[in-house]
Design a protein around this nucleic acid. Structure first.
Lengths: 346, 346
DNA sequence: CTGAAAGCGCTTACAG
DNA sequence: CTGAAAGCGCTTACAG
């Protein structure tokens, strides 16, 4: 009477046998039909009966059984360091889209860099749940990566190069920083500072290199004090900008290595009474919907993050697991000139 | 010679039989030991041999086999509408944390409201991959929800009430809006406007109700033009604020139903030369790291999103699948008074 | 305390 | 064109 008596799996799962029985055929026929076996030719009437039975019973092949039998999961795993970061959101979207296109599942989990997470991750993904592993950015998954490599299962690092792993997809951070600096130089700036990312992170060092390279091309000097490391957060950008503005001769223009730190930097400038872009030009790498609604709207180099996610899954699927993958996404970068940069007004 | 010859699953998977053989016991012993069967008593020396064999072979129980045999997946699924939204990031974090604590996997996917996504989702999660389903916010998963209900498998809607489903966890949006209005009233404001969410979304109507309720308590009139619907985006908030500021007598204070739309609204005020908080006070529901670094820093009602995620998983796991769950998270809301609200200066 | 055996629901040669 | 049978790697009564 009470529907709450109907607990758990009280409803017997419908199985391939049920379908076969209802359609009056052998399970092998059902199996081959449903898995799209090309070598199968069935009489049209049989095909129809099977399809009708499948629909009538709302049959769905059991995942665990299929996976066990074929010893593959038709799934990839993606480990991100943090769900609260639009860079990873973009990677996830791209990766999910590519996975869907090949009828693979994408299982995304976050792994903050605490030690017990490592073994949890290995337990979660190390047992046949996934056929290939994507590790994005600073996510900690060393144990899992070792395991996959040992077993000859494919691994790929996304947006970062992991020491000892010759398989990665990255963006052209070097070119992005160069393009940003060129924009500032073309506007007429000469005193240009840099709010960098975490000191030893792969993306930040490449952006820093690009910054140096473009400054050198332009024949511009870089006082040591003009380079400040932050941590890709609003707070980090805020502090970095403060230290820049406290200099006896502050920069006229700043490249922030990351959009959220740029937004934090804007806040510090506002607080110090420094007007952007009149007193200070600011440009950053990566776009964000909020960047357009900052005051003033932030000028930005938009990076092909979504494309990187897509490409990562495709490479993971299509490259033999022990081949090297050293790929820089070649989708063109895009300068989105908004209102935080202008010619120097001094 | 070339390591690239070692393709695919060339490395034979180590199986429970291998462990049993190496340890000189039956697989049943290994199985019971590894699944923590309480009814098992093994000689200490046997236990040691098994453990050593497991470690030596780096054995990990095959997920598909275990799942097939026990007909459960030890996993929950979470469907979100969008990874680019800190509300869902918070829900994911909370849910993942609770799932980890009970040794369950949490599989998170996004489902934008396009029709073919629906059947893809059903194929992905409808085949025994997960033991329970969480649907967050506006994510479209109707087909999957129906399927789970029919089978007597647990479903729970998070941060939204789905028509016809008496199982949900939501926040106290009503109380949040009331608290926000009270803050403005206490500061001395009387002309208070509201930038609402999408017209028919569950969360926005509850926030709107709270707004009305608190205004009524304060004996304040609400011109129709003071209520503007937006869509929880920066752009929506921007447009809504513009229309508010074009009024012949604009509000002195505004409650934005959502933090990103509040940030967009700030941009419109800035553009119109309206100074916050001098000319206009602004408060919003939900916090965001960037809200603290807006100029001025945004005053906010912080909502227990992470707690909602945790609670959702716990309820999903602990409640019989056909019982009703109608839960409002009772973690206290928190007013974070920053610098976007002040007494009226007129 | 330990072993033998059935079976979860599929897929895949193989036979007819 | 269709059927019978083995087996993927576990878990779980059951027997000893």
């Amino acid at each position: 009477m009470a529907s709450s008596e109907n607990t758990g799996s009280s409803v017997r799962r419908v199985t391939m046998r049920d379908v076969a029985q209802l359609a009056g055929v052998d399970v092998a026929v059902v199996s081959k039909m449903l898995s799209g076996d090309a070598s199968l030719s069935v009489r049209e009437s049989t095909r129809e009966r099977v399809l009708r039975a499948v629909a009538q019973l709302d049959y769905r092949p059991n995942y665990a059984a299929r996976s066990l039998r074929r010893s593959r999961a038709d799934a990839f795993g993606l480990v991100v360091p943090d769900f609260h970061n639009s860079v990873y959101s973009g990677i996830i979207d791209g990766a999910q889209s590519a996975a869907n296109a090949m009828n693979y599942a994408l299982l995304t989990v976050s792994a903050s860099p605490t030690s017990d997470e490592e073994s949890r991750l290995a337990a979660l993904f190390g047992n046949g749940t996934i056929d290939g592993l994507l590790v994005a950015g600073a996510a900690r998954a060393d144990e899992l990566v070792r395991l996959f490599r040992k077993r000859g299962q494919p691994v790929l690092s996304v947006n970062r190069r992991i020491p000892g792993l010759d398989r990665y997809v990255i963006l052209d951070d070097f070119a992005a920083a160069r393009q940003a600096v060129r924009h500032l130089v073309e506007l007429g700036h000469t005193r240009i500072g840099h709010i960098g990312g975490p000191r030893d992170l792969d993306t930040s060092t490449r952006r820093l290199d690009g910054f140096f390279s473009a400054m050198q091309d332009a024949g511009l000097a870089i006082p040591t004090s003009y380079i400040v490391n932050a941590d890709y957060t609003p707070r980090g950008g805020y502090q970095a900008m403060r230290s820049l503005l406290e200099l006896s001769e502050p920069p006229q223009a700043v490249l922030a290595a990351n959009v959220t730190s740029a937004l934090g930097a804007m806040s510090a400038a506002y607080e110090a009474g420094v007007s952007i872009p009149n007193d200070l030009s600011l440009i950053s790498i990566h776009d964000l919907d909020l960047a357009e609604y900052a005051s003033p709207a932030l000028t930005v180099i938009r990076m092909p993050i979504y494309e990187m996610g897509r490409l990562a899954v495709q490479l993971l699927a299509d490259t033999p697991p022990n081949d090297a993958i050293e790929q820089v996404v070649d989708t063109p970068l895009e300068l989105i000139a908004r209102h935080s940069t202008s010619r120097p007004h001094a």
